[in-house]
Design a protein around this nucleic acid. Sequence first.
DNA 1: TGCGTTTTGACAGTTTTTTGACATTGATTT
DNA 2: AAATCAATGTCAAAAAACTGTCAAAACGCA
Lengths: 226, 226
Amino acid sequence: MRVLVIEDNLGIQANIADFLEPDCVLDFAYNGDHGLELALANDYDVIVLDLMLPRRDGIGLCRAYRSEANLQAPILMLTARDTLEDKEVGFAAGADDYLTKPFALRELKIRIDALAKRPKIKNASSLNCGDLTFDPADNIVSLGSSSKPLNNKEGLILRLLMEAAPNAISGETISYRIWGEEPPNSGALRTHIYNLRKILSSLKTRCEIETDRSRGYRLKERSFDE
Amino acid sequence: MRVLVIEDNLGIQANIADFLEPDCVLDFAYNGDHGLELALANDYDVIVLDLMLPRRDGIGLCRAYRSEANLQAPILMLTARDTLEDKEVGFAAGADDYLTKPFALRELKIRIDALAKRPKIKNASSLNCGDLTFDPADNIVSLGSSSKPLNNKEGLILRLLMEAAPNAISGETISYRIWGEEPPNSGALRTHIYNLRKILSSLKTRCEIETDRSRGYRLKERSFDE
DNA sequence: TGCGTTTTGACAGTTTTTTGACATTGATTT
DNA sequence: AAATCAATGTCAAAAAACTGTCAAAACGCA
């Protein structure tokens, strides 16, 4: 079972780690931004979310996750706030369970197990931009009736481009989202972009990958006069 | 939203009714037998279950429901018992949430709403995909009159594939669901898929296990022209 | 022990991913 | 305007990863 714990208090973190570690693979995030990033990038069975976080508020994180994530893991909120209003806000933001501090670790464990049992919700998964459609579930780009399968990396890159569109996304960001801390040490990304472009143009789409020199890439619909 | 409330205390019942009635269609059961009967016969969005019941204990009811119901509604347990052991027993019996008396009606409402959001689990006794039928109870796949028994692992894998169909399910996920944290350290899964394929093709089914390279396997019905 | 189940390990074939060498581009400096 | 430099495009080929195949070994149980 994979669990993401977004909690800045190191003591609580350590407790949770000790208690859950035998049964779970745990990832930790120490602030909201990092937490959201991990949550979106990976497929967890449960997300444990403290509401008091540096960098990004837990409620906001939860909302953002619910609206952006493709595969929705259940979220268990953890907080010292225990008024009904707080709970209402938490559940309204998309929580699935709510535990107030101090709590027993065993109860946390029990509730995590219960949450993990329920099936995950899939968000409507297909993306589009201009005349193009991309379905990350099966890595297929299509324009009307014609379509092409992408391989894994190409799919990831196109997904990032589509999610970012019409803004540019930096090569560094793409690289980090795909490879994490250790990207290949040569211009692999360049090659993938090159291949993606070939595939897109073979589809005769009006979308193309623009490069914004030294800033990144952008997926854009060509205007008629080009 | 349809909610079944299994609760013998008339006062609590009335309170719940008053509070939830505007948003929910409520059914009430006053004892365990009646509760189980209603639960199995109807399709509720949530079941609120008091644990102290005449005629049939709530825990037993919950277990019975989980093993017998085809469409599994989430169960919220309601009880005065608040020790961790009680909660453990409750969740182990199949509860999805657990609220101890006395509780605020608003909190009950909030949690009911949260539970209702999640999709219900299907407990279909037999699965099918295209022309194939698989009965997980006795591990037999069949197509019309011809059928083949599967061994344990093959059955588990076919079940996962059928549940996921028509989507792909990753090798990692299958592996985790079958072996947990410690999968065999060699390509056992590959071998099982290989054998499953042989069995399927011996049945002359139009379903086949497609592989989605680097993303997993998918059970798919061949189209006519293939 | 014997038998069915499950895992292992080796190999081959395929696809994906990375590498590296070189060309091109655009901005900046001289 | 020419020279320069970093960023990017292009492409083929090497490397790595993934998958299918199958026989044999290990396991678990009656």
